[in-house]
């Protein structure tokens, strides 16, 4: 465990807590893409299958349970909570995310570390996580200015993967045979997807204005 990875896990945790706070405090999920949340739930379930077979550390197990629990709670809230579900604007959340699931699964069938059930699903979850934010970014573009908590959520989500890239560089330099190429390349793609969002976020922060995304 290194500081970059720990910082990455913490910003990831913060992003999920910010989202839960927003939904719980405002009893509203406007501006949030249910499709992105469903993709993240799939990512965590597919990746943490080893939860009960490989014990790595208490921290690892606890964080996996928290991530799976929170992502399923958010999807449950947005789909079934009698108050929150009414604030979900499905006519703007129209990204066809099932194509992302299919595409990532096909890619995982061809590019993986080992051709085993767990490894293929692990690679699938890595690819899917890289693109899971797309429905949310499309929704942000469509809805123009959005409320701060949603913007903070996307910002922390992008920062977490950026920290992980530093973690992979650090581990590559310090561990002899560290070759985590699938995760590193997918992580770079994921962070690149946030790049334009980060640019507009920084501009709005510098001008102390509300985030304006080009339509």
């Amino acid at each position: 465990m290194n500081i970059f990875r720990f910082a990455g896990d913490m910003t990831h945790l913060i992003s999920i807590l910010v989202l839960l706070l927003k939904i719980y405090a405002t009893k509203s999920c406007s501006g949030i893409s249910l499709k992105t949340q469903e993709l993240y739930a799939i990512v965590f379930v597919a990746r943490y299958l080893d939860l009960f077979t490989d014990f790595i550390s208490v921290y690892n197990t606890v964080m996996k349970l928290v991530f799976i629990g929170c992502s399923l709670a958010i999807v449950w809230c947005m789909r079934l909570h009698r108050v929150v579900r009414r604030t979900y604007n499905k006519d703007v959340d129209t990204f066809r995310h099932y194509f992302l699931v299919l595409g990532c699964f096909l890619l995982a069938l061809f590019v993986h570390e080992k051709f085993t059930f767990q490894e293929v699903l692990w690679a699938f979850s890595i690819y899917l996580e890289a693109v899971a934010i797309l429905p949310q970014l499309v929704l942000l573009q469509r809805s123009g200015n959005v409320d701060n908590l949603t913007v903070q959520y996307v910002f922390f989500l992008g920062a977490y993967r950026a920290f992980y890239i530093l973690n992979w560089i650090y581990r590559y330099l310090t561990e002899p045979h560290f070759g985590r190429w699938i995760a590193s390349v997918a992580g770079l793609v994921q962070t690149a997807l946030y790049a334009d969002f980060f640019y507009y976020y920084f501009i709005s922060w510098k001008n102390n204005a509300k985030l304006q995304l080009p339509a």
Binding site: D9, I56, N60, R180
Partner: peptide, 10 residues
């Protein structure tokens, strides 16, 4: 933390 060979990252 013990770094297991498998996927030890979240």
């Amino acid at each position: 933390f013990p770094e297991a060979s498998s996927h030890d990252e979240l």
